[in-house]
């Protein structure tokens, strides 16, 4: 019989405790982030797809078209073309394509670059229904960023 009463009173007590906990939570501030309206700060070491780095003085990409990144990529997702314009010594980057569908964000390309010409971007909100949208023209992207 005492087990019965223990069950009743113990149960009632634990129910009351439960209610008091949720009542306290009710008045605490919201901890979720209203995503599209509030954007979280992206951490320093976040790995988005790679992007080209601009030379601040000239406004041109730092890339010298050595092709190390292309060679170091295990999945072969980078393809770049450099041309030597008339009367210049150095090659100029004319096309830098990243096939992001294959990229595993390993970072070998960035490690292999001796000139700091590529880095991870902070782009995280990517969405598309077409595969072709993930072949990025990074040179164009750099120009668009201004």
């Amino acid at each position: 019989m005492s087990a019965y009463w223990n069950d009743v009173f113990g149960g009632a007590k634990s129910l009351a405790i439960g209610l008091s906990i949720t009542a306290r939570e009710f008045f605490k501030p919201v901890i979720t982030m209203q995503y599209p309206w509030e954007v979280p700060e992206i951490p320093e070491r976040y790995r988005g797809h790679i992007e080209l780095v601009k030379n601040e003085k000239t406004g041109k990409p730092k890339c010298i078209c050595c092709g190390m990144c292309m060679r170091s990529c295990p999945s072969g997702c980078i393809s770049l073309v450099g041309k030597k314009p008339e009367g210049e010594k150095k090659k100029v980057l004319t096309k830098y394509e990243l096939d992001f569908t294959k990229c595993s964000l390993c970072g070998s390309c960035i490690e292999s670059c001796n000139f700091g010409a590529i880095r991870f971007s902070k782009d995280y909100n990517l969405a598309s229904t077409r595969k072709e949208d993930y072949v990025f023209d990074l040179l164009k992207r750099l120009e668009e960023q201004g």
Binding site: F26, P29, V30
Partner: peptide, 13 residues
């Protein structure tokens, strides 16, 4: 809304 507040979310906004 109530569920949201109790779980410290905002509910429909």
């Amino acid at each position: 809304k109530g569920a949201g507040r109790i779980q410290r979310r905002t509910g429909p906004m």
